[in-house]
Design a protein around this nucleic acid. Structure first.
Length: 417
RNA sequence: GCGGGUGUAGCUCAGUUGGUUAGAGCGCCAGAUUGUGAUUCUGGAAGUCGCCGGUUCAAUCCCGGUCACUCGCCCCA
C-alpha cells in the first residue's frame, strides 16, 4: 500500500472532479472562441533554457520550483511551470510574426515543485489566454473581458474581485524601482528577513509582504502612480475607461506586482476570499519585453492564466455539465438477450445514453438501474419478444407502459427531460 | 525550503490511563423478493490501527525517524 499512492502533490481526476473540470473547460472554450481565439497546444516540456531566460534567474519558480531533468540524449528539459514562455516560443518557432495579431487559448497541466496545500499542487491545470502582437490597450481590455465573462458564466463572478494595477512602461517601472530601493535601504533595520532578500532580488515584491512590520513601512513607501510618465498614464486610462465601458468592476491595487520579470503596464489578479491562503484564481498582465528577452523580435503580448483546481472548488453543483441520465435495457431471461443488445445499440445510435448490465436477474438489474439514476428501464422478456414490444418503466414515477420496439427511440426522446 | 496539526474498514469518525477476539454509521455483497428499483428486515465480507525502528513481559496507544495529508510562511493559478 505504501507505494500505491500518487506522487506527492499529484492527484487523480475522476468522478465529480472530472465533471467539474470538463464543465469549466467547456465554458472556457466557448467564451474564448467567441472572442476569436484559437486553440494552441504546446508540449508540456521545453528546453530548460526557455523558462530560465523568461522567468528570470532570481525568481522562485526558476530557483526552487521547476521539475528539471536531463533526458537520455543529455538535453536539459523542464516540465512547464507556466504557459506564456512555451506559447511565446511556439509563436517564434512557427514564424507567426507574419500573422499577428495571434489570439490563443490553451488548457493543460502545469508543474511546480512546491509544498502542497489546499489549492496548490505539484501538477495542476491552467487555462490560458494570450493576445500576441498587439501593443494597443484594446488587447488588455479584451483579455480582461474574456476573464470576466468566464467567471460570470461559471457563476462565481460575485465572489471574485478584479485587482488592477499598472507597472508602467520600462521607464516608469525603473524609476519607481529605484525610488523604492532607496526608500527601503533607508529603513533596512525595520525590514523582515524575507524582505531584506527581496530588496536584493526583486524589490517590488516587498509591497506584497504579509509581515506586520513590513506593512507599516509599506504604508509610507513611494506609490507607483507618482512615477508614471505620460505614456503610462494614457495607456492605463484607456484600459480603465474600457473596463468601465463594459461594466467590468475593478479595484486599483497599487501594491499588486508580478513575480515574473517580463511584465509591464497592465497587471491584474482576480481574487477570492473563499480559498484560504490561495486566493488568486486568475492572473496575468502585459509582457511586451518577453519575446526580445528570448532572442526574438520585439513583440507585444498580453494574457492570463487561471487555475482549474481553484475554480473547481468554487463553482456550484447546478451548473455542472452532467451527462444525460441513462436508459437501462433489461433482458428478462436469456431468451431476449440478443434482441436487447440490438435494442440498446439502436437507441445509442439515436443519441440516447444507454446502459445494459452484464449479468443478473431482473431484481438485480433494476437495483443497479436505480443506483445509476436511470430515467427509464426497458424490460423485454419472452412475452414482449413475441409481440415486438418492450415494457418501459418510468423509474421516477414507477409507472410503466408497453411501447413497440420500432418506436422506442422516439418514445424516449419525447419523454426524457 | 521553514513552522504547526493530523494519520484507526471504500468514506466519516469513535476507542484503548499500554493487556487476550479494535467498534459505529454510511457504502459494498448476499438473502427475504429466481418478470420489476428507491423503503424495510436479516445476514456477510472488509483493518499489517500510514510505514520503519526504539522502550516494554506486552505497543494501534509512549518515544524517534519517515511518508502522506492539512493549516500558515515563502511563492504562486
Amino acid at each position: 500500500m505504501a507505494r500505491l499512492q500518487p506522487v506527492r502533490g499529484t492527484h487523480d481526476i475522476l468522478g465529480d472532479k472530472s465533471i467539474r473540470f470538463r464543465t469549466i473547460f467547456e465554458i472556457f472554450r466557448s467564451v474564448a472562441t467567441r472572442y476569436g481565439h484559437q486553440e494552441i497546444d504546446t508540449p508540456i516540456f521545453e528546453f530548460t533554457e526557455t523558462f530560465k531566460r523568461t522567468l528570470g534567474e532570481t525568481s522562485d519558480v526558476v530557483n526552487k520550483e521547476m521539475y528539471t531533468f536531463e533526458d537520455r540524449g543529455g538535453e536539459h528539459v523542464t516540465l512547464r511551470p507556466e504557459y506564456t514562455a512555451g506559447i511565446a516560443r511556439a509563436f517564434m518557432s512557427n514564424g507567426l510574426q507574419q500573422s499577428t495579431p495571434c489570439k490563443f487559448y490553451s488548457f493543460g497541466p502545469i508543474f511546480r515543485y512546491e509544498r502542497p496545500q489546499k489549492g496548490r499542487m505539484r501538477q495542476f491545470h491552467q487555462m490560458d489566454v494570450e493576445i500576441i502582437g498587439v501593443p494597443e490597450a484594446q488587447a488588455d481590455i479584451e483579455v480582461l473581458a474574456i476573464a470576466s465573462d468566464l467567471l460570470n458564466e461559471l457563476g462565481i463572478g460575485q465572489h471574485i474581485t478584479l485587482e488592477l494595477n499598472s507597472l508602467g512602461d520600462p521607464e516608469s517601472r525603473n524609476d519607481y524601482r529605484d525610488a523604492l530601493v532607496k526608500y527601503f535601504n533607508g529603513h533596512k533595520g525595520a525590514l523582515s528577513e524575507d524582505s531584506l532578500v527581496r530588496l536584493e532580488k526583486n524589490p517590488m515584491r516587498i509591497l506584497d509582504s504579509k509581515d506586520e512590520g513590513d506593512r507599516l513601512l509599506i504604508a509610507d513607501a513611494p506609490r507607483i502612480g507618482e512615477y508614471y510618465n505620460q505614456e503610462t498614464k494614457d495607456f492605463f486610462a484607456t484600459v480603465t475607461d474600457g473596463l468601465e465601458g463594459l461594466g467590468i468592476d475593478y479595484q486599483i491595487n497599487d501594491r499588486l506586482v508580478r513575480g515574473l520579470d517580463y511584465y509591464c503596464h497592465t497587471a491584474f489578479e482576480f481574487t477570492t476570499d473563499q480559498l484560504g491562503a490561495q486566493g488568486t484564481v486568475l492572473a496575468g498582465g502585459r509582457y511586451d519585453g518577453l519575446m526580445e528577452m528570448m532572442g526574438g523580435p520585439k513583440t507585444a503580448g498580453v494574457g492570463w492564466a487561471a487555475g482549474m483546481e481553484r475554480l473547481a472548488e468554487l463553482i456550484s453543483e447546478d451548473i455542472l455539465h452532467k451527462p444525460n441520465r441513462p436508459v437501462v435495457v433489461t433482458p428478462v431471461g436469456a431468451i431476449s438477450q440478443t434482441l436487447c443488445l440490438k435494442v440498446a445499440h439502436d437507441l445509442r445510435t439515436s443519441g440516447i445514453v444507454v446502459d445494459m448490465g452484464y449479468k443478473g436477474n431482473v431484481g438485480k438489474r433494476m437495483k443497479r438501474a436505480n443506483k445509476q439514476k436511470a430515467i427509464f428501464a426497458i424490460l423485454i422478456g419472452e412475452d414482449e419478444l413475441l409481440r415486438g414490444v418492450a415494457m418501459v418503466k418510468n423509474l421516477d414515477q414507477g409507472s410503466q407502459e408497453e411501447v413497440s420496439i420500432s418506436n422506442l427511440a422516439n418514445y424516449i426522446l419525447d419523454n426524457e427531460k
